[in-house]
Amino acid sequence: MPFETTTPRLLLTRPTEQDRAFHTAVHSDPRLYAHAPHVLGTPATNAEFFDAIIAHWATEAFGYWVARDRDSGMPVGWVGVQRRDGHLNLYYRFVTEAQGRRLAREAARAAVAMATEWHPDAVVRALVKDHNEPSVRTAEAAGLVRTGEQLVLADDLPDEAPSSVFEAPQLGRVEVLDDALRTELLDLWCRVNDAGGSVGFLPGAPLERVAEVLATHEKQMAAGDAVAGALREPDGRLVGWAWWVRVPNPLLHHGRWLYRVMVDPARQRRGLGRLLMAGMHRVAREDGVELLQLGVRSGSGASAFYAQCGYTEVGRIPGAIRVAPGDDRDDVTMARRVDGRPPVAHGGG
């Protein structure tokens, strides 16, 4: 797992001893504890907390990051996940001056995506007081959903309400579809079509036509040339789907093509697309894949999303996709590596 990552506005880095003073300043600021003033840090608790962060990094090689402004390099908050009670605890706390800019949700999304890609053995959780509405909104914007479970924390006051448990969706590998899963997927696919999603059909495509294309993908899966990823919320609801497909040419078997990336239209703007892609990267890496490719049509907004997932445009055919008479779009190819090597072009021409 990388020790650092970036978001559009932040650099998330592994903390060092030089960050202790910033950690103390954040966790001693009463403005950041308006919803729970009794847990405001003291010199002793702050030192213990920071030491635990450093120790977790030393033993697990991941943990809570320092969030820095990408332009100025100044630290603005803390975010990340740590192992706790069999789960990965999502944590975020940003300085007062950074609030109102949605930096916490930007950082939390990155943290949950990183955990989804690199730590499928544990569920990401956030424990949030219901009256702390900004924290609830941040957890939900990072893709987490209420489980209905509530927990009493060790530092809760005797008359304090318990914390609600929020959990992230998880992506599972799929190699064979049964009747129930096929029905679920077709329902999701058709709803994505009708919402205007770029998954191979225009809105209003009949179920029968979608089922025919699904059957083609199932043949690829049966032949060992495709594997799917199913993103499910804690209650089991299917909210995302995609395929990795291996092309017939053996010279290209170290790579895969991404097809039919779809997220439940009723759950847009919650970072689920990022979690779906993170899980799909993990599935590809488990199969020894080195290079990933995908195609998007211009004007859909998808290129910017995939760029945030680490993809770079490597080719474009102007006007290759005819959405409707008089509406031609470019066929854009994007790629990224997942083997840790940089994308370097061959110099031989």
Rank of each mutant, 00 (worst) to 15 (best):
P8Q: 05
E286L: 13
E290S: 10
R20H: 08
R297V: 04
A278T: 04
L186K: 08
R237E: 15
G271C: 08
D225S: 15
G255P: 05
V296I: 06
R68G: 13
A115L: 06
A113F: 03
R269K: 13
T183Q: 14
T147H: 04
A211R: 12
V344I: 14
R209D: 12
A104E: 05
I317H: 02
M277F: 00
L185F: 07
Y64A: 07
H38C: 11
V263R: 03
F3M: 09
W65N: 05
A21L: 15
P203H: 10
V152F: 11
L127Y: 14
A139F: 02
V39Y: 05
R109M: 13
A223D: 15
R102C: 10
A34G: 15
R20Q: 09
A284F: 08
V128Q: 02
S298Y: 00
T312D: 09
V263F: 01
L207A: 14
E140P: 08
T42G: 08
T7A: 07
L238Y: 05
F3G: 08
G319Q: 01
S28W: 07
A284G: 11
A107M: 12
P234Y: 05
R316V: 04
E48Y: 08
G196Y: 00
R246A: 15
W78M: 10
V210W: 03
D194W: 02
D327C: 00
L88T: 07
R102Q: 14
M334R: 00
